[in-house]
């Protein structure tokens, strides 16, 4: 079982702040439900790709092959992304 609090911390610190180089924002400022794209954190589409690559590299979880609606839903916030990682990670462990 993956610890969701740890996943959220890694997404904020290692993926959003370090990987995307959001120097002027601290992990503490990013709320779990803040929108990542289009508003809130204001990430663009190439940054979305970098988030996807970071998720795959760190957690071994892929977002390839899912519908645009699902893609948007999972990448909405740190909370939804962490939930996706935890559930997909658990499924991968079980299979």
């Amino acid at each position: 079982m993956i610890d969701i609090a740890r996943v959220k911390a890694v997404i904020k610190e290692d993926i959003l702040i370090k990987r995307l180089e959001l120097e002027d924002i601290t992990p503490e400022e990013i709320e779990d439900n803040t929108p990542l794209f289009g508003e809130g954190l204001g990430l663009d589409s190439v940054e979305a790709l970098d988030v996807v690559a970071g998720i795959e590299q760190i957690f071994g979880v892929k977002l390839q092959g899912i519908s645009p609606e699902e893609f948007k839903k999972h990448l909405y916030s740190v909370e939804t992304l962490a939930q996706f990682v935890v559930h997909k990670g658990d499924n991968q462990e079980a299979s």
Partner: peptide, 22 residues
């Protein structure tokens, strides 16, 4: 890489849909 990405994005945006990978 950026050319492929922007071509795909502009197409998806014309349709009003979103990203699918690959």
């Amino acid at each position: 890489f950026y050319k492929c990405w922007t071509l795909s994005e502009s197409y998806q945006k014309m349709l009003g849909s979103g990203v699918t990978l690959p």
